Simulated assay, not measured.
Amino acid sequence: MSWARIMAPLSGGQEDADALAAGVSLAEPFGAELLGVYTPADVADVMPWMGDSFMGGVQATALESLKEAAEIGEAHAREAAGRCTYGKLRFLSLQTPVWAGLSAESRLSDVVVFTDGPPRGRGALAESFQQMVADEQRPVLVARRNLRIDGCIMVAWEGGKEASRAARLALPLLEKAARVVIVSAPKSGARNIDPARLQDYYRQRGVAAEIELLTGGGDVGHALLDAASRAGASILVAGAFGHTRLQEFIFGGTTRTLLNSEGPSLFLSH
């Protein structure tokens, strides 16, 4: 299996260079295209908030400021893309409606790459991250400093729909790994989660995987992070937002624990 197109949303900020570098790390082993997509704030999203109470001149000034900020951001994003030496890099600047454009590009990309800020709710791309994972249900790589495609990759397995989807979609990544470990916590729920079934699924596709069982109860998210640390995993594959988004927002959940951690890079799918 292979990937042909990796997408990296860009904000025109300082993290764009890191996002592109992570995208290169993911695209290069597959000879894939890297698409850098400048994703500005959309004027169409802001206008309804202005309403009729805004005087014409004030509204025009506000819209002009947004347009100017978008142009400056695009220039910065283009500059970051210009410094990237990857031969299969392509740059795209989205126009209104930005939300629809980002969705369309993501649907024709194999993986969407973000740096660590947006998944933590920081920066201009925080909503774009939520859009990609929860709304578009695209596989997403949260790239951190220890990102290595050819290192140890750990797959969190609990037998659910989200975990199964992530485990399948990560196969091209696992084929490049030096070591694959399936980690499972049988006591964390009532579902039959025999990890040997996933191990056999991988074996039939040419990927040899080890199994580690987490015997304790308690916080699954922190247990997964501890296991990843012990294994020296550079990437953790996991299903995202297994509960409803409202439950995840109120109670945190395993996904939120992983996103707020200082652990390995994350390959997530909802």
Rank of each mutant, 00 (worst) to 15 (best):
S2V: 04
A19T: 14
A19P: 02
G23C: 14
A27I: 14
L35W: 00
D45M: 08
G57H: 10
L63A: 01
E71D: 06
I72S: 03
G73H: 07
E74R: 11
C84K: 07
C84V: 11
G87Y: 06
G87R: 15
L89W: 08
L89C: 10
F91L: 07
Q95T: 09
W99E: 13
A100M: 07
G101A: 10
G101T: 00
A104R: 15
L108E: 15
S109G: 08
D110T: 07
P118G: 11
P119I: 09
R120I: 12
R122W: 09
R122I: 15
A124K: 12
A126F: 11
E127R: 13
Q130C: 09
M132R: 02
V133Q: 07
L141Q: 02
R145E: 15
R145V: 06
N146M: 15
L147M: 09
R148C: 06
G151L: 09
A156V: 01
W157Q: 07
A167H: 01
L173A: 04
V181A: 12
G189E: 10
A190K: 14
R197T: 04
R197N: 12
R197W: 13
D200W: 15
R205Q: 02
E210M: 04
L213K: 11
A223E: 00
L224R: 03
D226V: 09
A228M: 06
A228S: 14
S229W: 11
S234E: 06
S234D: 13
I235W: 04
G242E: 00
G242R: 05
H243K: 14
L246A: 10
Q247D: 12
F249N: 14
F249Q: 14
F251H: 15
G253D: 11
R256G: 08
L258C: 09
G263A: 03
P264H: 03
L266P: 15
